[in-house]
């Protein structure tokens, strides 16, 4: 599982109800980089995530993963390469047990038997969820659900991870565990979040998306230090939080 670069060019997408969610989005992410995608509600972040592995097809523009453009007939391979972790872990964990849920993806790739078991075990170990194999997903805690959801994607050994609001609803300990797991992973990561300290801790680079396009791109600490920018796009640091201090004490 080598990390792959992501190249997004002039992405435009309009929903059937006429809402233009993406309006010429451009973004280039080198292999192995972690990038935070920031921006207000309705900016188009989730819509963009759904383009990364072809759940939505763009009206114009393109997304390329490594040497492969996200479009038919390469969608099966694209979906192997790009792991999408949805915002609601309950939407992602639909099988009756953790084991079957983590096995769902690799089984769709045609894996069976020992190789499948190995994938499941490795993925669960990577997120520190070994031992949960036989639990029913709806009996897990919020933090466990989030980590298992990540494991369901890791089991496909993707080269790129796209995470939608991975920290929402997590308690501080669950959030800490998630940061550590994500930092330990080699994949290229696009992390959609409203949690600015989380973005700063995890990602060296951030982009701000608003109105369906990228409006700022740079080192996370620099963007978070720009009060004008934050205010213009409905973002706010937690009270008392100083990104320059945080970055020095890391």
């Amino acid at each position: 599982m080598t990390a792959l670069p992501v190249e997004v060019r002039g992405l435009v997408f309009t929903y059937p109800d006429g809402h233009r969610a993406l309006d010429g989005l451009d973004l280039a992410v080198p292999a192995g980089e972690r990038v935070a995608l920031l921006g207000p509600n309705g900016a188009g972040k989730t819509t963009f995530a759904l383009h990364c592995n072809g759940i939505h097809a763009p009206d114009e523009g393109s997304v390329t993963i490594g040497d492969l453009r996200v479009a038919e007939p390469d969608l099966p391979e694209v979906r192997r390469r790009v792991g999408l972790v949805f915002q609601g872990a309950d939407d992602q964990l639909f099988m009756p047990s953790v084991r079957e849920d983590v096995a769902f993806g690799p089984a769709n790739l045609g894996l069976r038997g020992d190789e499948l078991d190995r994938r499941v075990a490795t993925a669960l170990a990577a997120v520190g969820a070994d031992g949960l194999e036989d639990r029913a997903p709806h009996h897990l805690s919020g933090g466990e659900k989030r980590r298992v959801a990540l494991a369901t994607v890791l089991a496909m050994e993707p080269a790129v991870l796209v995470l939608d609001e991975p920290t929402s609803g997590l308690d501080p300990a669950g959030r800490r565990e998630l940061v550590e797991v994500l930092q330990s992973l080699p994949q290229t990561q696009l992390v959609i979040t409203h949690d600015l300290p989380f973005a700063l801790e995890l990602c060296g680079r951030a982009v701000v998306i608003d109105g369906g396009r990228v409006v700022a791109d740079g080192p996370t600490a620099t963007l978070l230090g720009d009060q004008e920018l934050l205010r213009a796009h409905r973002m706010e640091l937690p009270y008392g939080f100083d990104p320059t201090v945080a970055i020095r004490t890391r």
Binding site: Y15, P16, D17, H19, A21, N41, G42, T46, T47, L50, I55, H56
Partner: peptide, 8 residues
Amino acid sequence: GDRQHSPT
């Protein structure tokens, strides 16, 4: 074949 409704 309907595409998904806009997410919020």
